[in-house]
């Protein structure tokens, strides 16, 4: 199993950037008496996040008895355990020496059609004005890069994607909205994300996608996973409507 992991790791896109094989590069901290956090670096860093997903995959695949949950974030993996089944010290030692494995699935590039501005993107004008840009420029900058999904959370399937271009960086809204519509594409700080279902939210909404990010009854309920990449493509309101019809009937 270890051999397989190493081989697939070497085959992943950013070859040679993984922390694999250097267990000294990680810090392990207790999060109470039922969880350990493995910290693999700091900040918004592709290599750190790849190591995070590699460790999360290894814990999940090897799943020692007593491990209850595995949550990956930007820079750390949180592992909850039942100390009556697995002791804290043996788990700590095991995690300290654990080799990252390739993620369960290779990261995919997901193309996200977005209807920017207007009813679908109520903050686009305001964001543009605050940044000293034209709305079209905001759209051009937002659709330009391919973003990495560092983590999924807040709501089922909400992708935390980054890095957002420096020219688009704004703090969160002063007062969060009580209800953000599903599919809203939004920005905050160095991140961009998509609300999978109607929830409260404090990010600036630039547009909306008809892509269903969360389909509870599907075999794979969540569309976008950590390690995937996102590419936003601007579509018109009528294209949005066509696509929305298509996803409904599909």
């Amino acid at each position: 199993m270890d051999g397989d992991g190493a081989a697939s790791r070497a085959n992943r896109g950013d070859g040679g950037t993984s922390l694999g094989g250097r267990p000294g590069a990680r810090i392990i901290r207790d999060a109470g008496d039922g969880a350990l956090r493995v910290i693999l670096g700091e900040g918004l860093d592709v290599r750190v996040n790849e190591a995070v997903l590699g460790i999360a995959a290894a814990v999940r695949r090897q799943a020692p008895a007593g491990v209850l949950s595995v949550i990956s974030g930007y820079t750390s993996v949180l592992i909850e355990y039942d100390p009556a089944i697995i002791g804290r010290d043996p788990l700590f030692e095991w995690l300290a020496g654990l080799e990252p494995e390739a993620a369960e699935e290779k990261g995919r590039v997901v193309t996200v059609p977005v209807s920017y501005g207007g009813e679908h993107g109520p903050d686009l004008e305001d964001v543009a004005a605050r940044l000293g840009l034209a709305p079209d420029e905001v759209v051009a900058i937002h659709t330009h890069p391919v973003y990495r999904v560092y983590a999924t959370g807040f709501a089922p399937g909400f992708p935390f994607a980054a890095p957002l271009d420096d020219r688009l960086q704004l703090a969160r809204r002063d007062s969060p909205r009580e209800r953000v519509p599903a599919g809203s594409v939004a920005i905050a700080g160095r991140q961009t994300g998509i609300y999978p279902l109607p929830t409260p939210g404090g990010w600036h909404i630039l547009g909306r996608t008809p892509l269903p990010l969360f389909s509870p009854e599907a075999a794979e309920p969540v569309l976008i996973r950590p390690g995937d990449s996102l590419r936003f493509v601007a579509v018109s309101v009528s294209q949005y409507a066509d696509l929305a019809l298509g996803t409904d009937s599909g």
């Binding site: 949550i71 990956s72 974030g73 949180l78 560092y150 807040f154 700080g189």
Partner: peptide
């Protein structure tokens, strides 16, 4: 930095 990380029960 505002980056999201996993949260444990009882935090």
């Amino acid at each position: 930095t505002g980056l999201s990380e996993g949260m444990a029960m009882g935090s």
